[in-house]
Every structure is written in C-alpha cells, then in structure tokens.
C-alpha cells in the first residue's frame, strides 16, 4: 500500500459519491408531480431515522445525521427552484445531454436507460421535456426513436443540429503512451476507426459513450481510455488526450425536443408523419402538394411500422401559422392515412 495508491482510491470514491449525490437530487426533483409542497416532515424523519440506525458505519451518528440534514435541505431548495426537467437517454455526459444543455442552459437534465422511458416520463408529466436523437449524418436515422415518433402523442417543440466531436479521454495522471484500448459505443468506435488504427488502439464496445467515460473515471483500468464528448470529460474529471478523433468532420446529430403541447412560437420548420396506401403515385401526390406550394422539403424518410407498412417522415421549411403552409398540410392530409403534424418549431444549428 502506498499513500499515492490510497489517495487514488479516495479520488475514485469521491467521483462515485458525487455521481450518487446527483442521482439522489434528481430523484428528489422527480417527486414533485407526486406530492404537494416540498416539505414532508414525516418522510424526512423516516430518512434520518434509517440513516441513524446504520450503526455499523464508521461514520458516527452525529456526522451522518447532520450530513443528511444538509442533503435533505439541498434537495428541498432545489425542488423549490422549480427547474425545468429535461430527460434524455443514456448516462450523464451523453451527447443527448450536451444537446439538452445547449438548448436550455438552466434546465435539470435527467438520464433514462431507454428512449421509451423518456417519452413516457414526458407523457406522464414527470418531465417537462425530452431530448432524443433523430438522425446522424454518418449513422442514418435512429430507428428506436423514429418508431416511437410514429405513434407518440408528444409534439416536437425544437430541434438541435449539433456537431459530434469525439475525444479520447483517460484518467488524470495516466501516460498516453500506455493506452492500448479505447472503450466506447459501437457507433462512436466505427466513426473513429482510422484514428484507432493509426495509434494501434483496440476499440472495445461499451453500451454508451458517457458510460465508458464514467467507467474509466470510476474503475481506472490499466492502459484504457474512453471515446466520448468533451462534456463527459468535464463531468467525470478525465484528461482529454485528443479532441476531434472522428475520421470525418461531417459528423452531426439532429435532436428533437419533445413536450406535451405545441411550441409557443410558430417556428421555421415543421415535421410530420403519415402512411400511404400501397398504390402507384401515393407518395408522389403528397410531395407534389408541397412542390406546387413552393415549400422546401428538407427530409424524407421511411420507417418500417407494421409488416409491409411504412411510416413516412417529412420535414419542411415554414410554419403552420403561414397560410400557404397550413393549406399544403390540409391538402396532404386528404391524400394519405393518419397524417399527423409532429410540430412546427425553431431549429438551432450549433
């Protein structure tokens, strides 16, 4: 045992404590829909009592009690601030979270394991907004998200078009020359293939880019690094060995911000989804409506729904508050099945 080794252990434990503290405060924020007011003396007493009964702890009763009083007080203050709650899929440090923070710097961003959980939590009112990736310039559409979009009752209230800048991250104080492996999400690894080859690094699949960064920070495996965002590096206190390690600089992801109601302003872009009958010219008829109205279609995508049936997504410039656009939407509605306007919104390019 060395002092240096023990201190490194302590640093790792601190990283975990901070992450757990954050998680606890987030749970506190999520309780707001399920109770009235922020003060619940019975519940607070219950928490303090449970902590006090953990007598085997090295930390004494007085210390843990005052610590928990501080935590509960902080949780209450935070709930009173009535922060906007924005959910995203992945772990803290995910690109979706970076997009959410770029869109609303004041919001509290809350992680969920699955995309469907993000949608559900917005529908139930636990969250104010959800931020999900829709498409990537290199990887194409995000299938899971688009299939939920086909049926969701949520509206698109904003879009964020963000560059994806991958960084190679290592534990602070480690020697870059010792790095042999890079952990990251499969898609990120494939976007950095040439960089990995040049530096003779083995890419290892991990469920999430930010999860890989967190693992490196908490477990510090020897000779290992993560490929994740700069944001993840800051969050987990990792050293950036190299920024911009992706092979193509054209790597961008487009995110939707979802909410229960439509955007307050009309915006400059619209998204819609519909089905066409299996007959000649069905899709053409819709496109013709927009072409004749002089409305620029910026995206068209088909996503398999029921076997043999495809949902068609279209994005176009304009707002439904503009009569010309509103007319085109009405005309299109008559030509296809289940035409649904997902939203008219502002798109921000970062």
């Amino acid at each position: 045992m060395t002092l240096e080794g023990l201190r490194q252990d302590i640093d790792i434990i601190d990283t975990r404590i901070m992450a757990l503290l954050d998680e606890r405060l987030e749970r506190g924020l999520l309780t707001r829909r399920h109770k009235t007011g922020t003060r619940d003396p019975a519940r607070e007493a219950e928490v303090l009592d449970r902590v006090a009964r953990r007598t085997r702890c090295l930390a004494g009763r007085e210390f843990t009690e005052s610590l928990y009083q501080r935590i509960i007080a902080e949780s209450r203050t935070m709930q009173e601030r009535e922060l906007r709650l924005v959910g995203f899929q992945g772990m803290h440090g995910a690109y979706s979270e970076a997009a959410a923070r770029a869109w609303d710097t004041e919001a509290a961003t809350i992680p969920f394991k699955e995309f469907s959980q993000v949608f559900d939590a917005v529908v139930s009112g636990d969250l104010d907004f959800g931020v999900v990736p829709v498409e990537n310039t290199l990887g194409g559409i995000v299938g899971q998200v688009n299939s939920i979009l086909v049926t969701t009752e949520l509206r698109v209230v904003a879009a964020i078009d963000m560059p994806i800048d991958h960084c190679l991250l290592a534990a602070p104080g480690s020697d870059h020359r010792d790095i042999r492996t890079a952990y990251s999400h499969r898609q990120a690894l494939s976007q950095c293939r040439r960089f990995l080859d040049r530096n003779k690094l083995d890419g290892i699949d991990w469920f999430d880019t930010a999860g890989a960064a967190r693992m490196i920070a908490e477990d510090r495996p020897k000779g290992a690094a993560a490929i994740a965002s700069r944001f993840a590096a800051e969050l987990y206190g990792l050293e950036i060995i190299k920024e911009g390690v992706q092979d193509s600089s054209a790597n961008r992801t487009r995110f939707f911000v979802l909410a229960k109601g439509a955007a307050a302003t009309g915006g400059n872009k619209c998204s819609a989804v519909f089905f066409t009958d299996d007959k000649a010219g069905a899709l053409f008829g819709v496109l013709e409506v927009f072409a004749k109205a002089g409305i620029n279609l910026t995206r068209i995508e088909s996503v398999p729904d029921e076997p043999g049936d495809y949902a068609i997504f279209i994005d176009f410039d304009g707002s439904d508050r503009d009569a010309r656009v509103a007319e085109a939407i009405e005309a299109a509605r008559g030509l296809v099945r289940d035409f649904r306007l997902l939203g008219c919104y502002d798109e921000r390019k970062l």
Binding site: H176, R177, F195, R198, N199, K200, I241, K242
Partner: peptide, 8 residues
C-alpha cells in the same frame, strides 16, 4: 511510443 501521438 510517441510517434503516432506526435503525428496526431
């Protein structure tokens, strides 16, 4: 051991 990194 530094060649590839300096090259980056």
């Amino acid at each position: 051991r530094d060649v590839s990194w300096v090259g980056e």
